[in-house]
Amino acid sequence: MSNQIPIAEGLFSWPAAKPALLASRCKRCGIAAFPVASSCMACSWQDVEIEELPTRGTLWTWTVQQFMPKSPYKSDETQETFIPYGVGYLELPGGVRVEGRLTENDPQKLQIGMEMEVVFEPYRIESNGDEVISFFFRPV
């Protein structure tokens, strides 16, 4: 089995039996932010704690990326193999609205307010064979 590595350290708990996105929450004003920041974007306070975000939420808005982005986009695709992908903000109750790629790219199957869950799946294979894991939002 190939080695699985997260696309960025500290973005989500990994490896974990039940991985989740990681947020920082300000100990003064209670505001949560993703990804983890060392200070609070709302009040500038530097005392924050890290918590796991809920793994289910509702789709706040969305689009479908129909053309392949230029660098810094880094996937396994070429212009010929590129598959349009959905992007949206998932509202996670009590936390924040997080932007992420959707597993669904059919506009007919995407609707504001629909329920989705956060999943962690292979995104690309590195030249050394490592499988890079990222997070996605999947319709429930």
Partner: peptide, 23 residues
Amino acid sequence: IGQWYGEVGMMMTTQFFAMKIQK
């Protein structure tokens, strides 16, 4: 912003405008 944000294809102004008008 972390490099991952661009690698997964979200560093796109066009997406933001599309999502804002969609909402």
